[in-house]
Design a protein around this nucleic acid. Structure first.
Lengths: 240, 240
DNA sequence: GAACGGCTTTGACGTGGATCAAGCCGACGA
DNA sequence: TCGTCGGCTTGATCCACGTCAAAGCCGTTC
């Protein structure tokens, strides 16, 4: 099915979107909701490797992922790529660009990606009239601060990897996907970069988890066999 | 001089505060400004070691530092303290608490601290009527995402330490203090925790910087002798 | 189907920074 | 004056993880 087509599908997506609670009728008068829906622009498809935006470009819009997976990354002075995050359906991209008014990172599709684009000036104007939207934006921004601080702690490779798997599964579950069997849409190298590890270390730790019966691994397909065991390993990271 | 006394001083502080541009008359009608000033509550003094708020407490207010220095920190499962940030006069505290609606960290005074307290519900209500306040909140939140991502990169001890000194100096300069001579209000252990290093490593690197003529160190008093050299060392961290 | 290139795994080895241990110094209280 | 306590420094040692190297695997191209 093509998420680019049809309002029925859009509505279904909206129930899992970060904006869902304000986009969907819930106490607002129809005219206000109409305005929000008018403001949303559906974009895509993007193919794996396509740039959604590039570091340094002028900030204009934030995006919600409708389908697919997006990675955000920066290239440092020495040309090394650092992955900042992975964005699943229903999650927002671009909030960190508000302040400098330029995107501070590249956003790159990992597979076939569809987005909802929200013009930020229009959205914040609307937010002054719809407090629910303002609240939601505050919450989304605040949550991103917490997320950014997560991987900043000094944790070892085991803790990082275990927490990554658990958090990834939890986010999938929150969107209605299976929390124990899933396919990683990113390469080992991307995971390594995100966790600030070497790709070889990621590979070795996954093997150890497999040998210990915590997970099953088949290339990029993962099955979590002992969620509690993983959660225990990653507890320092997971408990804020 | 006691920042707790006198409106003249308050006004002087406001010119360097994160909210300064909206608090100070600038196109707003007097009634709206009156409302913002009514909403601000001056609190303090706090003494070194006092908690401003504790992890897990219900979120109600954000704070601007009026005088002194504040550290924010979490205690993980194993009882290890991790410093999340240092907050200088003019900077905001508590923005990351909006989403979970509870403070995710402790905030602790490092010296004598005075604050402006903003009730967040009142502030966000006011923000729907004063777009400038809404914009400023969006900017502050967005900037914090970027700050949190800074120390998350995989940088070595030299890069982290150099970037820390430069950023600290820049923030002091932005508030009108000297950018080359300053006193660190936090212990070596706090710096180490913030940079995810061991205290011994911080000590050794400061000595190396001193031996290389980059800085002068006298206990907690620092003088930057070669700002460009330090900036060069920390360039990967500093350039986003 | 041969050849290529990117991704992943595995093993061998090196190292940056943590850990351990000891000593120094200034503050503070008796 | 002394003891002691916490913060800081310094040296010796250790180890988790990065780096290097090689080989396997898979999809893609011609």
């Amino acid at each position: 099915m093509d998420p680019g087509e049809g309002d029925g599908d859009t509505l279904r997506f909206c129930t899992t979107c970060a904006f869902g609670e304000v986009c969907l009728p819930g106490g607002y008068d129809k005219r206000a909701l109409q305005e929000l829906h008018c403001l949303v622009e559906h974009v895509g498809p993007f193919r794996a490797g396509d740039f959604l935006f590039r570091s340094g470009e002028r900030f204009e819009s934030i995006y919600a992922v409708r389908a697919g997976t997006v990675k955000t990354a920066t290239i440092d002075e020495e040309g090394r790529e650092q992955i900042l995050g992975f964005h699943l359906p229903g999650e927002m991209i671009g909030l960190s660009a508000i302040h400098p008014a330029r995107y501070p990172c590249d956003a790159i599709a990992l597979d076939t990606v569809y987005l909802c684009r929200f013009s930020f000036p229009a959205l914040s104007t609307l937010a002054t009239r719809m407090p629910g939207i303002q609240q939601q934006l505050f919450r989304l921004l605040s949550a991103d601060i917490g997320k950014a601080a997560l991987l900043a702690g000094d944790y070892n490779a085991n803790e990082r990897m275990a927490a990554f798997l658990i958090l990834f599964a939890d986010r999938l579950a929150a969107r209605g996907f299976s929390a124990t069997r899933f396919r990683l849409s990113m390469s080992r190298g991307d995971i390594a970069s995100y966790l600030r590890l070497a790709p070889e270390t990621v590979s070795r730790i996954l093997r150890r988890f497999r040998d210990d019966g915590l997970i099953r691994v088949d290339e990029r397909d993962i099955e979590l066999l002992q969620v509690d065991g993983l959660r225990q390993l990653g507890r320092c990271v997971l408990n804020h």
